[in-house]
C-alpha cells in the first residue's frame, strides 16, 4: 500500500541547531499516526515542514508515491494537506463560515473575472452547516465571531475546517492540550471520524492516554532524530515513555 504521505531523510537546521536530522516518516490512508517526543524534539518543526511553513534543507516529501515540494502553506493545502496548528490559526474577528472559507471562498458568477465575483454566502453557510452536522460539532451561535467562543468550540472549528478541505492528510498539533475532559472527548471523536472517512491523520500529543486510545502507530522523535516506532497499547506505555525521555533513564 502506498503511504498517503511519506517523508524521507528530512533535515532542517536553524542556525547552529539541528532541528531535524534525517527523519523518515510515513502515514497511510485511514491511519492515525501519533508523533511523540519531548519539548524541542523536532515534532513541530517536522509538521511545519510538511505543511509548507518551513522548507526542508534536505530530504524529500512524497504524496501517494509522487515527490512534491511544499513551497508555502497554500501549496500544501492545494495538495490536500490540512493542518490544525497549536494556536489554531483561526480568524478571531470572523464567524465560523468565514473561517472555513477565507482563502477558498465560493464566488460567482463564473463569467465575471475572479476579482469581480460576488461571494455566495448562502452556499458557504449551507455547506458549513452540513459539515458541522456531519462531524457532530454543535456551535451555540453560528453567527458569533469565533474569538468569543469557548476553547473547545474553537478547537472543534479548527479541526472541522481541516476536515472540510483535507482531501488526503490532516495534521493536528496538540489538539487537546488546552481542553477540558468533555471537550477533549469531542475532539478525539472527531479525529476518529476523520480516520473512518479515510484520511491519513498525524497527531502530536503529550497525552499518552489519548495516544493509546486513538493512534494506530506512534513515532518517537528525540533531538531531531526518529528513535523508534511502536504500536501504542496500555502494555508498552512504559516503553514509549522511555523512548521519549531517552532509553537509559
Amino acid at each position: 500500500m502506498t503511504p498517503a504521505l511519506a517523508v524521507r531523510g528530512a533535515t532542517k537546521r536553524f542556525g547552529a541547531v539541528l532541528a531535524l536530522d534525517g527523519v523518515d516518516l510515513a502515514v497511510f490512508p485511514g491511519e492515525v499516526l501519533a508523533l511523540l517526543g519531548d519539548n524541542g524534539a523536532g515534532k513541530s518543526t517536522l509538521i511545519k515542514c510538511i505543511s509548507g511553513v518551513h522548507r526542508l534543507d534536505s530530504g524529500s516529501i512524497e504524496m501517494g508515491g509522487v515527490a512534491v515540494t511544499m513551497g508555502s502553506p497554500a501549496a500544501a493545502r492545494a495538495l490536500g494537506i490540512e493542518t490544525v496548528y497549536q494556536d489554531l490559526a483561526l480568524f478571531d474577528n470572523l464567524d465560523p463560515v468565514a473561517n472555513f472559507y477565507a482563502g477558498r471562498e465560493i464566488a460567482g458568477p463564473r463569467w465575471l473575472p475572479r476579482g469581480l465575483r460576488l461571494l455566495r454566502r448562502r452556499d458557504m453557510s449551507r455547506a458549513t452547516g452540513e459539515l458541522l452536522t456531519r462531524l457532530q460539532v454543535g456551535i451555540a451561535d453560528p453567527h458569533a465571531t469565533v474569538g468569543l467562543m469557548s476553547g473547545g468550540q474553537r478547537q472543534a472549528i479548527a479541526v472541522a475546517r481541516a476536515a472540510a478541505f483535507a482531501s488526503k492528510v490532516v495534521i493536528l498539533d496538540e489538539p487537546t492540550a488546552a481542553l477540558g475532559l468533555r471537550e477533549s472527548r469531542r475532539v478525539l471523536d472527531l479525529i476518529l471520524r476523520l480516520r473512518e472517512e479515510g484520511h491519513a491523520v498525524i497527531v502530536i500529543s503529550h497525552a499518552m492516554d489519548h495516544v493509546i486510545e486513538i493512534a494506530d502507530r506512534a513515532a518517537v522523535l528525540r533531538r531531531g532524530r526518529k528513535v523508534g516506532e511502536m504500536r501504542p497499547t496500555p502494555d508498552n506505555r512504559q516503553a514509549i515513555v522511555s523512548l521519549i525521555v531517552g532509553g537509559d533513564s
Binding site: 494556536d87 490559526a89 468565514a98 482563502g103
Partner: peptide
C-alpha cells in the same frame, strides 16, 4: 467579494493566521 473578506482576515492579529491558512 473575496478581496473584502481577505482584508478582514489579514487584519486579524498580525496576519499570522492568514499566512498559515495560505
Amino acid at each position: 467579494t473575496r478581496f473584502g473578506l481577505r482584508v478582514f482576515a489579514a487584519g486579524n492579529g498580525d496576519g499570522h493566521a492568514a499566512e498559515l491558512m495560505g
